[in-house]
Simulated scan of single mutants.
Amino acid sequence: MGRLLEQGKISSDQMGKMVFLAIVASAVTAVPSYSGKYAQNDLWLSPLWASLVGFLTVYIAFSLNRLYPNKTIIQYSTDILGKVPGKLFGLLLLFFYLHITGLIARGYAEFIIGNFLPQTPISVVTVTMIAVCAYAVKAGVEVIGRTAQCFFFLFLFPLVLMPFLLRDMHIEFLFPMFEHGLLPSMKGALIPQGYFSEAFLMAFLLPYVTDRHKGLRAGMLLILGIALVLTCINFFILLVFGKQAADYLYPVMVAFRYISIAEFFENLDSVVMTVWILGMFVKISVFYYAIVLGTSQWLELADYRPLVFPIGMLIVALSFWSLPNLYESGRFDIVAFPFYGPLMQTICPLLLLAIALVRQKGKRQSEAPTAQAASGSVHSEKQEG
């Protein structure tokens, strides 16, 4: 069924860049502020703790794909759990991704309106982004993969600009380090670990990877890369704002307003916004694609493209229905998402993997006596002959 639905192929490198942008694009704006609330001047360490969830999630996704190489989680969940329980789990997972994608679209629109287009209706910002993403999703995984490959190094460009903040940095903001032990930095990792669990999107992409034997390595490298990028960003933000980083809603954007290169290149936050929009385009497209592909597999359709626009309209609707305002969106990120994301993308797949391994072991044990009996009967026949 997977081959009928998607003819495109991507490399493990493209898959890694797709998932990298899908995680970092929204995490980069929120993580410094959220981690700073708990970790304070140890916030630079929080992404490293959070990455442990990412490494586990990648291993789970790859292990499940190794057992069912040509299927996504929507397909092999019925093989593992049975027809009805597997369908119910698949429906629950699809609803989760639909809900999360609506929240991502809402967060994107709130960020654009709050920072750059205050007079623009939020519906216009949301609909235009979903419309562009729908075009990419309809083109297939190969187009999204190539887009991620093109935008990847451009997205990292703001990191190159960050050292120009040096004249506004204060090394003393790093101290005292570990004043209250490691616990504050671990608390600061609660929210980032929800973003790292999004690496489970690999479960929808691995069946279409040409060099799948490199998938685990690519996945581990992408988690390591995300951890290093978020650590660097948190480190620079800490040196600029200190403990006050938690007081800003979008500290990264505020920091880039401080950059002045030769007193000529200033107000670089507009450059950062442009690059960030490209990253959000890839992020929403990957989530959107996973929903459309998974829904078509759940319904056992021969083509996923007729679902692209109906699901796009659902995403737009959920972006307005899910949360009433920016305050509630931030509250959801702090209170619910650190548990909601890992539950659906790490813990439930881990249980699925455990059940699959137990069932496969039981199947091998039941087949062993049959094989021995068959070989014994053949041997006795030879003796009689």
Rank of each mutant, 00 (worst) to 15 (best):
L228I: 11
K214C: 05
Y208W: 13
V229P: 01
L216E: 09
L249W: 04
L249I: 12
D247Q: 13
A218V: 07
Y250A: 11
V252Q: 13
I237C: 05
K214H: 13
G225P: 01
Y250I: 14
F256H: 09
L216Y: 08
V240L: 11
A218T: 10
M220T: 08
L230G: 04
F204I: 01
A245E: 02
F256T: 07
Q244T: 04
H213N: 14
V254G: 06
N234E: 12
M253D: 12
L249N: 07
A203R: 00
Y250C: 10
A227C: 09
T210I: 12
L206G: 06
R217T: 13
I226C: 10
G225D: 02
A203Q: 02
L205E: 02
T210E: 14
C232R: 03
L216G: 06
I223S: 00
A255R: 03
I233V: 15
L228M: 10
V254R: 11
R257G: 15
L239W: 03
A245Y: 01
L228N: 03
Q244P: 00
N234Y: 08
L221C: 11
V240Q: 04
P251F: 11
V240N: 02
F235V: 02
V209Y: 06
M253C: 09
L221I: 09
A245G: 02
L230M: 13
Q244V: 00
A203D: 02
F235H: 11
I226S: 08
M220S: 07
V209A: 05
L216W: 10
L230F: 07
Y248S: 13
L224E: 01
H213D: 14
P251K: 12
T231I: 06
T210C: 09
P251A: 14
L216K: 11
M253Q: 14
M220E: 03
A246W: 00
V240R: 03
Y248G: 06
D247C: 01
F256Y: 14
G219N: 06
M253G: 12
G219A: 06
F236P: 04
A246S: 14
Q244W: 00
R217D: 07
C232I: 15
R212S: 14
N234P: 07
D247P: 01
L249M: 13
A203T: 06
M220G: 04
D247N: 13
H213S: 14
F235R: 07
P251L: 11
G225Q: 04
F235Q: 05
L249E: 12
I226D: 06
L221E: 09
D247A: 14
R257V: 10
G215F: 03
T210V: 15
L239V: 05
L222R: 05
P207I: 04
T231C: 13
Y250F: 15
R257C: 09
V252M: 15
